[in-house]
């Protein structure tokens, strides 16, 4: 098929439903007198006024910074500990029930405890994000490291690939599909924790602002905050997909060929 035509078609598929939905929302809400559901036009105008202002620096930036630091921390700690536990059979079996327990605690329940310890500052919120998001990364890494292909493992041992080289060229690549899957779960948990920790106790941030708007009945502002949180989630997941596509290109190719799709 003509590439231009193909692009047009893909774009058509991707845009039709969103455009229809937004149009419906726009038309239906246009002369809405409902206090809680203001016209979409009002929400969008408010969006610009509220978020492209001082708030961008005072609320959005601190939230996103805490999120990124916390998430990175969770990934580093999770992969590090996971490699350690995955490589040591006894250690893994000793720690498994404890780790399963920690994973099973709904992460937001840790917020009151961690705030007892660390106050309600930035550090506390970063710790909250790390302590909730680390488990899927950790447990997936353990699982991935554990399941490294035996033949590959023996081969690299025969060739004298040990230590860091083994980690870099065998263990991490082999475990990467699992690790990335864990990282994806961790990302959505991180966003939840960023918002909840700010709703629970904070003086700035996105979650704090949105809940303030709701409590002061600033309805269009509240809607614009929800919209912004939604966009943030969407953009982060988009970035993550790009990252995943790069790191796991070989894996998806392998899967496709195994399934016989060229």
């Amino acid at each position: 098929m003509n590439p231009v035509l193909r692009w047009g078609r893909t774009l058509g598929y991707a845009l039709t439903l969103p455009v229809v939905l937004v149009t419906l929302w726009w038309v239906w809400s246009a002369d809405s007198t409902s206090y809680y559901a203001p016209p979409l036009q009002t929400i969008l105008t408010t969006f610009g006024d509220v978020w492209f202002s001082e708030r961008l620096r005072a609320d959005v930036l601190p939230s996103v910074t805490r999120l990124l630091i916390g998430y990175t921390g969770a990934v580093v700690v999770g992969v590090g500990l996971g490699v350690l536990l995955g490589a040591n059979r006894t250690l893994r079996r000793v720690t498994e029930p404890v780790l399963e327990f920690f994973r099973a605690i709904p992460p937001p329940a840790l917020i009151p405890i961690l705030f007892l310890f660390a106050g309600i500052g930035d550090t506390a919120k970063v710790i909250v994000i790390i302590s909730g998001a680390v488990w899927p990364v950790l447990l997936n890494t353990v699982e991935g490291v554990r399941a490294v292909d035996d033949v590959l493992s023996d081969t690299s041992r025969s060739y004298g690939v040990t230590g860091l080289a083994r980690l870099r060229h065998l263990v991490l690549p082999a475990a990467s599909p699992q690790i990335v899957a864990g990282m994806r779960q961790a990302l959505s948990i991180s966003i939840i924790l960023m918002v909840i920790s700010e709703m629970f106790a904070s003086t700035n941030g996105l979650g704090f602002s949105v809940i303030q708007f709701q409590r002061s009945f600033a309805i269009p502002e509240m809607w614009s905050g929800i919209l912004l949180l939604g966009l943030l989630g969407f953009v982060l997941s988009l970035l993550f997909q790009l990252f995943e596509r790069r790191t796991l290109r070989w894996y998806h190719g392998l899967r496709r060929s195994q399934r016989g799709e060229n």
Partner: peptide
């Protein structure tokens, strides 16, 4: 599937906790 893919990909990562204030109001 083709028509809904983009919408699903957009709505799925929207953090559910963002809906808290809306849920309270409505």
């Amino acid at each position: 599937r083709r028509f809904t893919a983009s919408t699903i990909e957009f709505l799925r990562p929207v953090p559910s906790v963002a809906l808290i204030p809306l849920a309270v109001l409505l």
